[in-house]
Design a protein around this nucleic acid. Structure first.
Length: 480
DNA sequence: CTATGGCACGGATT
DNA sequence: AATCCGTGCCATAG
């Protein structure tokens, strides 16, 4: 019942989205693309400029970006340059030099759901199976787990439970193996069975996960050994196998800034903004911000329409009539272009400020993120705070080190502290308790309550001190 | 007795 | 107005 309700809500959100033509700021690149495609299809007066022009001076260019002159001028006025990368319709690559280090990870960056669908779809035979498959993929959480039981899914989709189970089993076979599992335990079981099929299985590890899971997560090797009737040494060897070969979070994307060490490479949609570190010969390193967007200069109004519309409007006015509908379309087209220009302008100004303030974070890592609120940035930029909120929502940034992270991460108040905690625990001699960590942080000038350390640690997927002496990486990390 | 997680409150943020 | 977040208190597990 709850499921059906959520579903309903989402549909509503989607429709209002399309109705709001003016709010382009809230859209990310992918959404903007659909929006522009739609506008082009509906509006005969609007057309796409095939020839790319420099967003600064409007001069024609070979392959987009900004022309060298404008680039130099931008460079002169500060360390941050902002360039718009005009984005050709239906292209999924970022036009730029392929030798930058971020491109390697970018090439692999397919949205996880698309990637799963590509693999699953060929095995789906009937229309009903397609519906089930699409639904299952949509309902995966950020770990790649499916919390709903096949029964609930069957109930919601009005189909036999066997059909759901059949599709789900196929989803389990898909890369990264283990997606669609209900929880960490089932995920590891699936991975172990998968390995067994290719002859690399580990029978004891499988039994351990299937029959002694509670002992395993408690770190109670003796108890596990007793239950399975084997030597403790064998159990320890099996847990090492698990730690080395399996990953409990199949969709180990950047989540709370944490990537599981043995997890697969994060897959994320195309970024909206790319921040590059450019070394221009003189040893001077500059941060260059490229915005992946439609340059408004790429869209234009058909000349014929514009001329005729001017005439028609003048004619209509002199005769006291309202102009014809196609003339209205011309107005709508120019309004659309204006909105696009506005959007890019806002985004550009915002990013310039943001990169200036968070330079250390971008270059040196999570620990150097300066806590900043959207409201503060709004003040700096001189726009309303809700403008920043909308501009940040749903967008992603590619950092110079190749990570693609949500833009919202720039406003994470606790990221640097979480990074410190991870660092402390990684280098600890003996397992430190949350209280001890809190004291250490206080010595560094970070005042956080013991309880808060516990929450952060949990969010990082790190088990409590008492369970930490072993390899143990299996820990769902429930708290937020 | 100590370390940790659950619940809930209040203040900040969106 | 709704939501998120840090924290204190208390129960419980080890």
């Amino acid at each position: 019942m709850q499921v059906a309700y959520q579903r309903q809500e989402r549909r509503q959100a989607a429709t209002t989205h399309l109705v709001l033509t003016t709010n382009l700021l809230g859209l990310n690149v992918a959404e903007l693309e659909t929006r522009v495609t739609l506008e082009l299809a509906e509006n005969p007066a609007l057309e796409l400029e095939t020839e790319l022009r420099c967003p600064r001076c409007g001069r024609p260019l070979e392959n987009g970006a900004t022309c060298p002159d404008c680039l130099k001028r931008e460079a002169a006025d500060g360390h941050t340059m902002i360039i718009e990368v005009p984005r050709p319709l239906h292209s999924h690559s970022i036009p730029d030099e392929p030798d930058e280090d971020w491109t390697a990870s970018l090439a692999r960056s397919v949205p996880l759901r698309d990637y799963l669908w590509e693999q699953l779809a060929p095995s789906l035979e009937t229309e009903a199976e397609h519906v089930i498959g699409a639904y299952l993929i949509e309902r995966l959480d950020e770990h790649g787990y499916l919390e709903e039981s096949p029964k609930d899914v069957a109930l919601y989709l009005h189909c036999p439970i066997e059909a759901v189970e059949s599709v789900l089993e196929r989803l389990w076979q898909v890369e990264p193996v283990g997606v669609g599992a209900r929880d960490a335990r089932q995920c590891l079981e699936i991975q172990l069975r998968h390995l067994a099929e290719s002859g690399e299985g580990h029978p004891l590890a499988l039994d351990l996960v299937r029959l002694a899971w509670d002992r395993l997560i408690a770190g109670d090797m003796k108890g596990a050994a007793a239950r399975l009737g084997v030597q403790v040494g064998d159990v320890i060897e099996a847990t090492e196998f698990i730690a080395d070969n399996l990953y409990p979070y199949p969709a180990a994307v950047y989540h709370d800034g944490y990537r599981h060490p043995t997890g697969p490479v994060e897959r994320f949609a195309e970024p909206d903004v790319i921040i590059k570190l450019r070394d221009d010969g003189n040893g001077v390193k500059r941060l260059v911000v490229e915005m992946v967007t439609f340059s408004p200069y790429q869209l234009r109004i058909d000349d014929l329409y514009r001329q005729e519309a001017d005439l028609a409007r003048a004619r209509a006015e002199s005769e006291g009539e309202s102009p014809p509908q196609w003339a209205e379309m011309v107005g709508r087209a120019s309004f659309f272009i204006k909105c696009l220009y506005q959007r890019n302008q806002t985004l550009r100004v915002m990013m310039k400020q943001l990169v200036g303030v968070q330079r250390d974070f971008i270059l040196k890592g999570d620990r150097y993120l300066k806590p900043m609120t959207r409201a503060e940035l709004a003040k700096m930029v001189g726009v309303h705070e809700s403008t920043i909120s909308r501009a940040v929502a749903g967008k992603t940034v590619a950092l110079p080190d190749g990570r693609i992270v949500p833009l919202a991460m720039f406003f994470d108040r606790s990221l640097s502290v979480r990074d410190r905690i991870r660092d402390i625990i990684e280098h600890e001699e003996r397992p430190l308790t949350d209280g001890e960590i809190a004291v250490m942080l206080k010595a560094e000038g970070i005042k956080v309550a013991r309880r808060t350390v516990a929450k952060y640690r949990n969010a990082l997927g790190i088990p409590p001190a008492s369970l930490r002496r072993r390899i143990l990486t299996i820990h769902p990390g429930g708290e937020r």
